[in-house]
Simulated assay, not measured.
Amino acid sequence: MVAEIAGNAVPKSLLAAREALAGLKAPRVKTEAEQKLDEVLRDLKSTKSKAAQEAARRKLERLKARLEALKLAAGSAAATGDAKLARKVAKEIRDAARELGRALAAAGGDAGSAGVAASAGTASVAATETKTGEQIKTVAAPAVGTPGQGNDLATLKSEAMGMLKELKKIMRKLRETGLHPNIPSKDRIEMEKMFAEAEREMAGLQAAAMPGPAMPGLDAVSVHGVDLRA
């Protein structure tokens, strides 16, 4: 049978499709196998996020351990006009900023959002209710990803911003090396090239360490209480 609406013939297939859509009043309930698969996928995401955060933490600690040596080397290069030493320090900063930025980006997946919320001071204690006869006993579950553990994503990003501030100070000191007039032209060009590469990777680190999704063209001034202009 063919129905007519406003003088236009409607094919039976369209009518059948409309009736089928009308019958979908409630979403399909997942099977037990599908629910178990969802749990497995959630566990995998959580494990991957924790591993990525631990990797970022290790890279951050290694950079902290090298910070004083980088400051001393930058001061020496600036005082003596040693372009090769300045280039070496800038290269180390470039590589460290690149590695840390990539590690933070890897740790910032969907599974890591729980750690961000916990460290930001949102609800960190879950209540579990167990019934014993006529009584209901409330048991507090341990907090997950608390800032004191130092492994949650927001804490990592905050520390990375502080580290970025120190790296910017070192780069400013390194640029004083270029004030010496007797640096050979070739060394000066190579030094400036490395400076540009280091600052590009530092910009990438800043984007990865932002508390939320980075916006194109965003020039942050203060993040996590850290003044990036200093």
Rank of each mutant, 00 (worst) to 15 (best):
M1A: 14
V2H: 09
I5Q: 13
I5K: 08
A6Q: 07
N8G: 00
A9L: 13
A9E: 13
V10S: 08
S13V: 14
L15S: 09
L15R: 04
A17L: 13
R18T: 10
R18M: 15
L21E: 15
L21F: 10
G23C: 05
P27V: 08
R28Q: 11
R28I: 11
K30D: 12
K30E: 11
T31M: 06
T31K: 02
E32F: 07
A33D: 13
A33F: 03
E34N: 09
Q35L: 15
K36T: 05
E39K: 09
E39G: 07
V40Q: 13
A51D: 08
A52N: 13
A52P: 04
A52F: 07
A52R: 04
R57V: 04
R58P: 00
K59F: 08
E61R: 12
R62P: 02
R62V: 10
A65I: 03
A65R: 08
L67E: 13
E68I: 04
E68C: 00
A69D: 14
L72C: 01
A73G: 15
G75V: 00
G75T: 01
T80G: 05
D82A: 13
D82I: 06
K84E: 14
L85F: 07
K88M: 11
K88R: 13
V89Q: 05
V89Y: 03
K91I: 03
I93G: 08
I93D: 07
R94N: 14
A96V: 04
A96Y: 02
R98N: 14
R98E: 15
E99V: 13
E99C: 01
L100S: 11
L100D: 14
G101Y: 00
R102Y: 01
A103Y: 00
A105E: 15
A105N: 12
G108P: 04
A118R: 06
A120L: 14
G121K: 00
G121D: 09
T122P: 00
S124G: 15
A127V: 12
T128W: 00
K131M: 08
K131R: 10
E134D: 12
Q135T: 13
K137M: 12
V139N: 12
P142M: 07
P142D: 14
P142G: 12
A143K: 04
V144T: 11
V144K: 07
V144W: 04
P147Q: 03
G148M: 05
G150Y: 06
G150V: 08
N151F: 10
L153A: 11
A154L: 14
T155Q: 08
L156V: 06
E159K: 12
L164Q: 06
L164D: 07
E166W: 00
K169F: 02
K169Y: 01
M171C: 12
R172G: 06
R175I: 02
T177V: 09
G178Y: 01
H180T: 04
N182R: 02
S185Y: 05
S185D: 12
K186G: 02
D187R: 01
E190I: 04
E192H: 10
F195I: 09
A196R: 07
E197G: 01
E197S: 07
A198C: 10
E199N: 12
E201R: 03
M202G: 05
M202L: 14
Q206Y: 00
A207Y: 03
A208K: 02
A209K: 05
A209Y: 08
P211I: 06
A214Y: 15
M215N: 07
D219A: 07
D219N: 09
A220H: 01
A220Q: 07
V221W: 05
V221H: 11
S222W: 04
H224P: 03
V226R: 00
L228R: 02
L228F: 02
L228T: 09
